[in-house]
Design a protein around this nucleic acid. Structure first.
Ligand code: ZN
Ligand code: ZN
Ligand code: ZN
Ligand code: ZN
Lengths: 138, 138
DNA sequence: CTTGAATTGTTATCTTATAACATGAATTAT
DNA sequence: ATAATTCATGTTATAAGATAACAATTCAAG
């Protein structure tokens, strides 16, 4: 085959594209069952089809799971997909639901500083800062 | 009444004490249903009794929810209860299940630095760093 | 082809969490 | 004191999230 492995990895399957589009269209993170409902007419018939597709996209660093919401959102950065990053940091507005991803570069140093006294090798970091966003503070 | 409000707040109800003891006895975080099973003979008959008690203890800053595990653990610090802190940071070993809480003082500055460009007022921060602990690295 | 591995589909089930309503205790008003 | 209101707790039912187990399909060697 002619395609490089990396190139092939970037070509998403039909199902992966459908989930990406559904998440991208939504302004808010979606639960797996909301995604399922949105894609009932597109070949998704059971939760597992959604969960498997989400797992694939998460492994690619294109989707993240919001742990404190049990919900999923498209990655807002370039750096995650390019490094297949499983780690992501978010601010989440409790009033309007806004979710914004924090740049990777800011987070890395911070994590290692947090761990200075903790002989601990991190593999996956989840930072979720909940509060009130700029426009909801008025 | 003679007791100050603060004093009263520190006196836990029977149910709160039972949940605290159950969590403290366990070396690992527990799910709500595990707590329920452990306390079936002590008056807990439905999930909601556990969830309501957990909510109260979380509000007091004595228990934290581990978002990435859907599980609950006793606070390991003094600072959380004294300030009713809802925010907590943990390292979680993926090999042995060890959970260790990171000191509040280290985290606060870090969060505000993360938010320097993000006109965002944080109310509750969850940091969960997964990886491999010291003893599991051998 | 045939076989075995990997992926996908399907059903059933498990875990986690909350809604809705009932009951009971405590506080306040008449 | 008793009725009315409020607040906490109990109970049942159900929603929402996730996975186990197995069947069907695809696809690449041999
Ligand atoms: Zn990302
Ligand atoms: Zn907002
Ligand atoms: Zn704590
Ligand atoms: Zn360990």
């Amino acid at each position: 085959m002619i395609k490089t492995q990396k190139h092939a990895a970037l070509e998403l399957t039909e199902k992966q594209n459908l989930v990406m589009e559904t998440l991208a269209k939504s302004k808010r993170p979606l639960g797996a069952y909301s995604i399922l409902d949105a894609l009932r007419d597109d070949g998704f018939k059971a939760p597992l089809q959604v969960y498997r597709t989400l797992d694939q996209l998460i492994t690619l660093g294109m989707v993240h799971r919001l742990e404190s919401l049990n919900a999923y959102t498209v990655c807002q950065l370039d750096s995650c997909a390019s490094r297949n990053s499983q780690s992501a940091s978010f601010v989440i507005c409790e009033m309007c639901g806004l979710v914004e991803e924090l740049a990777h570069s800011n987070v890395e140093g911070i994590v290692s500083r947090l761990l200075t006294n903790f002989d601990f090798r991190p593999t996956k970091t989840a930072i979720e800062i909940r509060g009130v966003c700029a426009s909801c503070q008025s």
